[in-house]
Amino acid sequence: MRTVFAGRTGDTALAGAAREAFTSAMSTAFAVSAAGVPAAAVLAFLVLRERRVPAPGPEPAPEGATAQERPATSF
């Protein structure tokens, strides 16, 4: 569309300026994204490394449960 508009006006500098603006904006967006992805990965690592999942173990017996009422453990 920009070449059509530039063709109608006869201004080839307009098409060149539009092309340069588009290329510059895409380059800037790529650079910001390229810097943001590793930063987000480091942030996720720092936030998630403090979380520890407890090792699974036998379930505690309910208060006052007898040996027959306790859950069986299977290995």
Rank of each mutant, 00 (worst) to 15 (best):
M1F: 14
R2E: 10
R2A: 14
V4F: 13
V4E: 13
V4C: 08
V4R: 10
F5W: 12
F5S: 10
F5Q: 07
A6L: 03
A6M: 05
G7T: 12
G7F: 11
G7W: 10
R8L: 15
T9P: 01
T9K: 11
T9E: 10
D11M: 01
D11T: 05
D11Y: 06
D11S: 06
T12K: 14
A13K: 13
A13H: 11
A15H: 09
G16E: 15
A17W: 09
A17I: 06
A18E: 14
A18L: 15
E20Q: 03
E20I: 00
A21L: 08
F22Q: 11
F22C: 09
F22D: 09
F22G: 00
T23Y: 10
T23H: 12
S24R: 10
S24F: 03
S27T: 01
T28L: 06
T28I: 09
A29Q: 14
A29L: 13
A31T: 02
A31Y: 01
V32S: 03
V32D: 15
S33F: 06
S33D: 06
S33A: 15
A34I: 02
A34Q: 08
A34N: 07
A34L: 10
A35L: 07
G36Y: 06
G36F: 06
V37S: 06
P38Q: 03
P38C: 03
P38T: 03
A39P: 02
A39N: 03
A40F: 13
A40W: 08
A41N: 01
A41T: 11
V42Q: 01
V42E: 06
V42W: 05
V42Y: 04
L43Y: 09
L43T: 14
L43C: 13
A44R: 00
F45E: 06
L46S: 10
L46A: 12
L48W: 01
E50F: 08
E50Q: 02
R51W: 14
R52I: 07
R52S: 07
V53G: 00
P54E: 08
P54V: 08
P54G: 02
A55Y: 01
P56L: 13
P56C: 02
G57L: 08
P58L: 04
P58I: 00
P60V: 00
P60C: 05
P60S: 01
A61V: 08
A61T: 07
A61W: 08
P62N: 07
P62H: 07
P62M: 06
E63K: 14
G64P: 04
G64M: 09
G64L: 12
T66F: 03
T66L: 04
Q68K: 12
Q68E: 15
E69I: 05
E69Y: 00
R70D: 06
R70A: 09
R70V: 08
R70Q: 10
P71I: 02
P71A: 14
P71V: 04
A72E: 15
A72F: 05
A72N: 06
A72I: 05
T73D: 11
T73A: 13
S74L: 13
F75Q: 03
F75R: 12
